[in-house]
Design a protein around this nucleic acid. Structure first.
Lengths: 175, 175
DNA sequence: GTCTATAGGACGATAGAC
DNA sequence: GTCTATCGTCCTATAGAC
């Protein structure tokens, strides 16, 4: 069920992990290779340059983003609840998209391609939220509330204790 | 009224500008010095190292943060409105704290001292909002809405068109 | 207080063995 | 597919003139 991931996936995981734990400044080919338990040469066989590594993360944002929206549509708890729940970080949050998003956020403003991928992701969510909330402005409002929770996650805060209260507040707005 | 800023201030402004426009990857002593119109040696006279430059930005977050909260307390429009307005980016937004915050956000996750300064700033705002909203959870909610708007600003989006609608939504919650 | 020049180190990427 | 070794570049920081 959980076989050892391929070297390529391990390398991308290592890239994410270092971004989340130490930030963009700690990203060197050597550090990523060491964490993925390959040599620098081994890394460069799979990703021909540092930029290829970045593109790998962007592709992951795209693929996992689609999966995430599909899961949201099918979630018994409903789209809004699913969205807010996946926006908070708590000790047990280990969803793949959550880690990929946190890693990508560390690169915002550094690479235009990352900014664009993140904008696309937030806008896709906005559209899905609009379908389920029935109001364009309220959809923006819920979307941006989730973004705020993500910013706090980026700062290392655990916001899970706010989740139920926030859902109750949105319920008062008819959401 | 607006004399030419001292070299030290110009250097810190240049540091911020490059962070906002090109990200942490574009920060080199040479690039900052060029933008501030001093030489590399001139820069290093005022800030003895790259880390000193970072500390300068952190200090600015602290000082401007205090000023910002004071202005919010005195704002005729009220604290909540002031907060949301200063969280959106539009073409005319040139408040000093806004630019400093956007620059500091580019460094989140890279330097623990930055994360701490940003957490302190958001928590001070939360406390002020709680005084004026009268409810702890609602204060967190408004605070995080502003954070979400800031994240969008970080992505290069203009969210000013949402401001009035968001204020109206909060009014429905008795805020 | 501001400059030029350069030492010294870190990093990305290539070459080639296995 | 994975490794070691190495080259060339870019960057921080220092030294010292003005």
């Amino acid at each position: 069920m959980m076989p050892k991931p391929s070297a390529k996936e391990r390398i991308l995981d290592a890239y994410q992990d270092i971004l989340i734990e130490h930030g963009i400044g700690a990203i060197t080919l050597e550090a990523v290779a060491a964490r993925a338990e390959v040599s620098k040469g081994g890394l460069l066989y799979h990703f021909g340059s540092k930029e290829a590594l970045l593109q790998g993360l962007i592709d992951r944002v795209g693929h996992l983003g689609v999966t995430d929206l599909d899961e949201a549509r099918a979630a018994p708890e409903g789209v809004v609840r699913y969205y807010l729940r996946s926006s908070v970080t708590d000790v047990t949050q280990d969803k793949a998209m959550h880690r990929t998003t946190l890693a990508a956020m560390r690169l915002i403003g550094n690479e235009e391609a990352v900014d664009e991928a993140m904008r696309a992701y937030t806008h896709n969510w906005r559209d899905l939220l609009a379908e389920h909330v029935g109001d364009s402005v309220l959809a923006d409002f819920v979307g941006i509330t989730g973004d705020g929770l993500y910013l706090r996650a980026m700062l290392g805060e655990d916001t899970s204790h706010l989740l139920d209260d926030f859902i109750a507040i949105l319920a008062r707005l008819g959401i």
